[in-house]
Design a protein around this nucleic acid. Structure first.
Lengths: 294, 294
DNA sequence: GTCAATTACGTTCTCCGTAAGGATG
DNA sequence: CATCCTTACGGAGAACGTAATTGAC
């Protein structure tokens, strides 16, 4: 047995008009084809749904029972299909993104502005979180995609958006301040201040040669804004990736690129492995890629 | 766009198995035909519902949205169709009947017994009501059929089940008691007691020649059992139709057929005009007809 | 190399339209 | 006799199966 939406339409049209010819017109069918269709439906149902004399067409009591169910079913199906169309055409939807705070501040304002302009009906959820949080949100399915900098991303499908250079940040009266570039070794020679161990920057630097595990003199902060203020006060220097430099755009601070070519922080776009993105999320990926290329 | 139940089945089978070949088997289709079917469904929906590599088949986020709706819709449709089958096979259903009290007492016990034996799952509702109530219940759709004796039945489809003879009921010491039959005129000569005007019997007799409109001496009762007791007491005689005779089966009472051939009470099976009966009601009609023929 | 989905192609069958048939008022 | 549903029949397109192709592991 096989019932189609057009069968339901035909049945309901006849139930309403009580007239084969007019119902057939409404369904864009010849009257004969329509009659056959009703016959097939009745055969499939196993009973007569309409009582017809050549003059009068009425529902049987069983047909009346079926009308209400058919109406509801057709309506549900229509709603479901319309919902799919809306998803496809991005008239509705939702996309959730978890990104590093630096990425959130530097890239996402423009990305989200363009995305909303292109897809005004899609709800965007942005989480600015540290790398470990980004990863767990992605793992738990709380976000569709994540932009992070961790290394332990084998469980996801990843693509590197950019390999960021690091910069030495110091005050203008620091010995290295006039340099156009420095090496990591040179930078470490100064009074270095680190970010907290939990940050992705610290994790990354930790792996490099010549970077000690121990805090130099207890100045180990959580927020880049704090670090920036400490350096401005002349309490030391630090090494930060490019995307965070906006924190350090203040008087007397200098950012000097670190030459070491292997010292790069990969900014990674991660998505659940082997699972397709929603159309809404796919569109978000496009915008992110465009931003990363810029 | 046209979606069928088999399309839903195919979609849901693939959603569950995540494997074209196995889902195709479940749907009794070749793997190729199945693949095409999924493609058509996706084309109809306007978007990709499954993400496939040759090794792995998974739902897209949009597909996941659709799964739940599809499941519900398919289940609703199945329920509706199964319900129809049940109605057709009289596994479920309901039939309501309004009948005259005399018919209720004489015919319906046997009718209902046979009906229940044949259709154990169908709920039977029986109303024993006077003619006017039977008619209004039928008119209001509170019952499927009515068995009554009124004359004003043009608004219904009717068929006469039987034309009842009338009987003179008297005590054995009444002058007419020994007769094998009497005429209506002879009966009216005695001290006649009538039923209340509202009864169908009175309404019918009223139209006959020689029957006066006025109560003879104020003995005008509503219930046949009362009438029976009055006659047994020797307070008079009465004229009643055959189906009510069971009230008068007591010592010293005699029921004598009235010869007048035109004096017959038609027992009528009435149903809504131009409206088909439910299958359950149709089966009840069959039983009633069988009873009336007996 | 194997497994699995897609594509190609010929066949079958469903569905539709034209036209004739039949019933009803 | 006019209206309207049903049946008959032929054709077009959809759906299916077999088999070849492509792609992933």
């Amino acid at each position: 047995m096989n019932i189609s939406t057009r069968d339901l339409d035909a049945f309901l049209a006849l139930a309403q008009t009580q007239h084969f010819t007019r119902a057939a017109e409404r369904c864009h069918l010849s009257q004969s084809a329509f009659s056959q269709k009703i016959s097939r439906i009745e055969a499939a149902a196993g009973l007569r749904l309409f009582e017809r004399s050549t003059r009068l067409v009425t529902l049987t009591p069983e047909g009346e029972v079926f009308v209400e169910e058919a109406r509801r079913i057709r309506s549900d199906l229509r709603q479901a299909l319309i919902g799919l169309q809306d998803l496809a055409q991005r008239r509705i939807g939702r996309v959730a993104v978890a990104v590093l705070p630096s990425v959130a501040a530097e890239w996402m304002p423009a990305v989200i502005a363009r995305y909303r302009a292109a897809n005004p009906r899609i709800k965007v959820e942005l989480f600015d979180s540290l790398a470990s949080t980004c990863i767990s949100m992605l793992r738990d399915g709380r976000v569709d995609i994540a932009i992070t900098a961790g290394e332990e991303l084998q469980e996801f499908d990843c693509q590197v958006l950019r390999r960021e250079r690091y910069f030495l940040v110091c005050r203008d009266d620091h010995p290295l301040a006039p340099r156009r570039s420095v090496t990591l070794a040179q930078a470490m020679g100064s009074d270095m201040m680190h970010l907290a161990r939990s940050s992705s920057v610290r994790q990354h630097l930790q792996g490099q040669q010549g970077v000690s595990d121990a805090p130099v003199d207890g100045l180990e902060v959580e927020h880049l804004a704090t670090l920036s203020a400490l350096i401005a006060q002349g309490l030391g220097v630090s090494v930060v990736p490019e995307l965070t430099l906006f924190h350090f755009r203040r008087d007397r601070l200098r950012a000097i690129p670190i030459r070491d070519p292997q010292l790069r922080r990969p900014i990674v776009l991660a998505r659940p492995k082997g699972k397709a993105l929603s159309i809404a999320a796919q569109a978000m990926v496009e915008e992110v890629l465009a931003q990363a290329r810029a």
